[in-house]
Simulated assay, not measured.
Amino acid sequence: MHSAANIAVVERFVAAMNHGAFEEAYALIAVDAEYHNVPYAPVFGRQAVQDTIERAGVNECDWTIHHIAEADGVVLTERTDRIRVGERWIDIPLMGLFKIAGGEIVLWRDYFDPAATHPKTVTTQGEHDATR
């Protein structure tokens, strides 16, 4: 596959997630894929990816790709992943790596700060948030 086709796979994946078409998104992931949210442990297999996302309680996605590039079958994305968990939206700035083979995602790795997934402490003027 050439770079435009590999980028298109990732763009289709993100679009499906954003439209709540999770099954369509999962179908773009290889059956034996690796999914790694760094710094957490990786999981292996399409079903494990689906289970991980479901276990996280993700109800909705609004992911924005700021930049995207491809070389040698690897697509890099700079994104902000906005996810709804329960009634709360979380914005996660991250860098993502997708390795594409045969039109499928065989490796999906996101690098992010886990502190971004935790709610910030509400502060009043003069107080400091301990998470900063």
Rank of each mutant, 00 (worst) to 15 (best):
V31D: 10
E34L: 13
I29A: 03
G45M: 06
E70P: 00
I83F: 13
Y111D: 13
A69N: 04
L28F: 04
G57H: 00
R84F: 03
A33K: 00
W63L: 08
A69I: 01
E60W: 03
A56Q: 10
V85H: 10
C61A: 09
E34P: 09
E60V: 05
D32V: 08
G96W: 06
L76H: 10
E78T: 15
A48S: 08
G73P: 02
G57P: 02
I105N: 03
I90E: 06
R46I: 01
I105R: 01
L107R: 12
L94T: 04
A41H: 07
A33R: 00
V49M: 06
E34Q: 14
P39A: 01
P93E: 06
T52R: 11
V43R: 06
V58R: 00
T80S: 06
T52D: 07
E34T: 12
D91F: 05
Y35F: 14
I92L: 13
V31L: 10
E87V: 15
I92W: 07
E70D: 01
V74D: 05
C61S: 11
D81N: 13
L94N: 08
I53D: 00
G96L: 09
I53N: 00
D51F: 01
V106Y: 00
T80A: 05
N37S: 14
W89G: 08
L28I: 04
A69Y: 01
Y40S: 12
R82W: 09
T52S: 12
H67R: 14
Q50W: 01
M95F: 15
Y111Q: 12
Q47F: 12
W63F: 08
Y35D: 08
D110V: 06
V74A: 12
R79A: 12
V106S: 03
E87F: 14
G103I: 00
E34A: 13
